[in-house]
C-alpha cells in the first residue's frame, strides 16, 4: 500500500512538473549572432527558451553558468528550460562560433 502511494505521489509530481506553465522567451541566431544578445528573464522563475537558428549552419547553445548545452541544426529550432535563477548575469555562447555568437541572460 505504502509503495503504491509512493508511486502515485511520484507520478503526480512528475505530471505536475511536466504540466507546469512557464514563461517562454525566444532567441534567434542570425549571421552567427544571438538576437537579442541580452535577454532579461524574471529571477526565481523557471523559463523556457526557444532558440531559432536562421543560419544555414548548425550551432550549439552552451552556457557553463546555466549548465546547458544543446545543438540546433541549420534552419532548425530547439527548446530548453533554465532556472529558477538567482538575480545575476549568466553568459552563454555558440560553441561552433564562439567569437561572434555570445550573449547573456540577465535574471532580475
Amino acid at each position: 500500500m505504502t509503495a503504491r502511494l509512493a508511486l502515485l505521489s511520484a507520478c503526480l509530481w512528475f505530471v505536475s512538473v511536466c504540466a507546469e506553465a512557464v514563461p517562454e522567451y525566444q532567441i534567434q541566431i542570425k549571421n552567427h549572432l544571438f538576437i537579442p544578445s541580452t535577454l532579461e528573464v524574471p529571477a526565481h522563475t523557471k523559463v523556457k527558451l526557444l532558440i531559432v537558428n536562421m543560419d544555414a549552419t548548425p550551432e550549439e547553445f552552451e552556457s557553463y553558468e546555466l549548465n546547458r548545452e544543446k545543438i540546433v541544426v541549420g534552419g532548425g529550432k530547439i527548446t530548453l528550460f533554465i532556472g529558477p535563477l538567482a538575480p545575476g548575469e549568466y553568459p552563454f555562447f555558440g560553441e561552433f562560433n564562439p567569437r561572434t555568437a555570445q550573449g547573456v541572460v540577465v535574471a532580475k
Binding site: 509530481w13 512538473v17 507546469e20 528550460f81 532556472g83
Partner: peptide
C-alpha cells in the same frame, strides 16, 4: 533531464 524540464529543479 533538467534542461528538458523533466525533473523538478
Amino acid at each position: 533531464l533538467d534542461q528538458a524540464g523533466l525533473v523538478a529543479h
